[in-house]
Amino acid sequence: MPLDKPYQDIPGTTIFDAEQSRKGYWLNQFCMSLMKADNRARFKADERAYLDEWPMTDAQKAAVLARDLNECIRLGGNIYFLAKIGATDGRSFQQMAGSMTGMTEAEYRDMMIAGGRSVEGNRRIGEDGDAQAHRQPQGKK
């Protein structure tokens, strides 16, 4: 698709466009189902069985079970949908976002309190900022 997608050279960032959306359709729809308390309870009681009700790929199911949000996003997930898993687990957006960086919860929180991640070196793939692939995973732990 020769479309204008100028957002593909940004490091550590996946833009949720139609292509990602199609890849992640069932993964995201599964996440939406967790907006009902009943479904959250059923999911918690037996995650695997609940996931098997959805026509997701094995890789998507494994990523959900492992709470590997980077992998979920690679497989078509979108953070606003995936946040329903975090909500079910009682995790905040900050905990979820931090989990994708390789930092500990405390490291990530402290980075935010100190003013957040700098954009310097993180605008384009190939620069040397802390979100670049060659500097992953982040964190000292």
């Binding site: 466009d17 139609a18 199609r22």
Partner: peptide, 11 residues
């Protein structure tokens, strides 16, 4: 035709 349809939507 999801691929063409998505392309048209995007455009």
């Amino acid at each position: 035709h999801p691929d063409l349809a998505s392309h048209i939507a995007h455009s």
